[in-house]
Design a protein around this nucleic acid. Structure first.
Length: 242
DNA sequence: CCGGTTGTTCAGCG
DNA sequence: GCGCTGAACAACCG
């Protein structure tokens, strides 16, 4: 379900609930979710994979993790973690993490690293990469403080597009190539968004889950790389190890 | 039925 | 206190 672009889609799907009052709250979250009853939704925001429901006194953070999903104006055969019922319509979140954020969002989040954000700033990303020269690039792409919103699919596709081997050390990658990587992380994320909206995301995967390199037709390597030990699909021939 | 996964946190250990 | 590992959580697909 959830890499950054998927959360953008969620945000777009719930726009009509902005300004609406929650009339009833259900769910198996152990938090005091009843405090949401009677609250009016001020806005929906996102920071990477975090979906933020903004109320005047606080914010609710939904994280869909690996298996989470949601239904708008319908339910599925499962107990929602959080169910928000309005006079007209409802939003249901399943298998997710729910948290209250009491602080101002601007104390908690820095949007300049969020690949989907209007405030995205490649210089922030470059600085944070420069501070982690020993990190493998496959881990850096999944580090939410560096590439906020990037997940495993985006990681694999961006590394393939930029011809970078996942086990390259960040500090060994030439600056020009780093800039390309940063730019492509955002660029591919928007391709992801558009393709997902059209239900053609998988069709456009060049590397993720692939067995043969579409560029040179050599077999791909599948390996659980880096500290994150997430699946990497890459071409030893086309992707340079720095 | 089992194995695997678009993710993250935390306990336990050396 | 650190870094590392594995467990835990959860739902769905093939």
């Amino acid at each position: 379900m959830p890499e950054g672009p998927s959360i953008i889609i969620l945000k777009e799907e719930v726009q009509s609930f902005i300004g609406k009052k929650i009339v009833q709250v259900e769910g198996r979250s152990k938090l005091d979710i009843q405090r949401l009853s009677g609250q009016k939704i001020i806005d929906f925001k996102s920071w990477g994979k975090h979906f933020l429901i903004c109320f005047k006194p606080y914010t609710v953070r939904i994280h869909l993790m690996l298996f989470g999903n949601y239904r708008i104006n319908e339910q599925k055969a499962a107990v929602p973690q959080l169910r928000l019922i309005f006079n007209k319509g409802e939003i249901n979140f399943y298998a997710c993490s729910v948290k209250f954020i009491e602080e101002s969002l601007y104390e908690v989040y820095d949007w300049s690293s969020d690949v989907m954000s209007d405030s995205w700033d490649p210089r922030t990303v470059e600085l944070r990469l420069r501070n982690k020269p020993d990190m493998l690039v496959c881990d850096a792409l999944l580090d939410q403080q560096i590439f906020t919103g990037v997940g495993n699919i985006i990681k694999n596709e961006v590394l393939f597009r930029t011809h970078i081997h996942p086990e390259s050390r960040v500090g060994n990658i030439p600056r020009k190539k780093i800039k390309e990587l940063i730019k492509e992380a955002r660029n591919y994320s928007f391709d992801f968004l558009n393709w997902k909206k059209e239900y053609v995301l998988k069709k456009h995967w060049l590397a993720h889950t692939k067995v043969i390199c579409p560029r040179c037709h050599m077999p791909f390597t599948k390996k659980y790389c880096g500290k994150t030990k997430r699946r990497s699909f890459f071409c030893e021939n086309c992707q340079i190890k720095y």
